[in-house]
Structure formats: structure tokens, C-alpha cells
């Protein structure tokens, strides 16, 4: 699925990375706990989260993720967007809850059978 399709499905705002919306992604990790993102995210390309701080961006950088979606209307700060731009990460935000956002993506084909064990 292209990042632009994620934007459309989640009716999301694009905060940065407009030039990379054509990029294809095949997996998502939804989590507010960065410790678990670092432990379990595997090769997941997109991070859905309701946590808003610079460590969200740095965690995504460490895990080679290409797109972050902030759920529940959370807005990234300028500092966070600067970090994301430096690392070429697309940042989106949606009014949907984590549950609804994950459901929309899953039911439209972004399916993962990844288990932590």
C-alpha cells in the first residue's frame, strides 16, 4: 500500500514528507510504548502511535521506519518535525483512535501475521 493510500484511508493530515507519499509499505506496528516498538516491531515500516515526544521520531529512525501516524488528533511539535525531516520520515496525523485507524488499514489489506514469540 502506498503512504498516500494510508493518508486517504485515515483522512490524515500530512505534516512532512509530502514527496514520499508514493512509497510502498507492507506492514504496520501500532503502539504507544516505545520500549515495545524497539523490542517487537521487526521490519514494520509504519508506526501508529498516540505518544507525542521526540523519542517517537528517534525510535522510528532507529527501527528504519518510513512513516509515523499520530492517532487521536495528537499533533507533533516543530522540534519533532525537524527531526523527522532530517531523517526523511513521513509524518501524518488523524482524528481516528488507534483501534479505528488500525482497523481501517487492516481491512484494506495492510495485514500482518507477525507475532512477538
Amino acid at each position: 500500500m502506498k503512504i498516500s493510500a494510508i493518508r486517504d484511508l485515515l483522512e490524515a493530515n500530512v505534516h512532512c514528507g509530502e514527496g514520499k507519499l508514493d512509497k510502498e509499505v507492507s506492514s504496520v506496528f501500532g503502539c504507544d510504548l516505545m520500549s515495545d516498538v524497539l523490542a517487537y516491531a521487526g521490519d514494520q515500516a509504519v508506526l501508529l502511535t498516540g505518544l507525542v515526544n521526540p523519542q517517537v521520531i528517534r525510535t522510528a529512525v532507529m527501527m528504519d521506519m518510513v512513516c509515523i501516524v499520530f492517532v487521536r488528533s495528537k499533533a507533533p511539535s516543530e522540534e519533532m518535525l525537524t527531526l523527522a525531516k532530517e531523517s526523511g520520515i513521513v509524518v501524518l496525523s488523524t482524528d481516528m483512535t488507534m483501534y479505528t485507524a488500525c482497523g481501517k488499514l487492516y481491512s484494506n489489506g495492510l495485514v500482518s501475521d507477525y507475532r512477538v514469540k
Binding site: 510504548l33 516505545m34 520500549s35 515526544n53
Partner: peptide, 15 residues
């Protein structure tokens, strides 16, 4: 509340 402190740090470093 900042997203850390889940007790995964050291195990993850070893992993």
C-alpha cells in the same frame, strides 16, 4: 508516560 520504562531495555540490548 514518556513511552519507556517497560523493562525491555537491557533484554533488548542483549537481543
Amino acid at each position: 508516560s514518556l513511552g519507556f520504562g517497560a523493562g525491555m531495555g537491557l533484554p533488548n540490548m542483549r537481543k
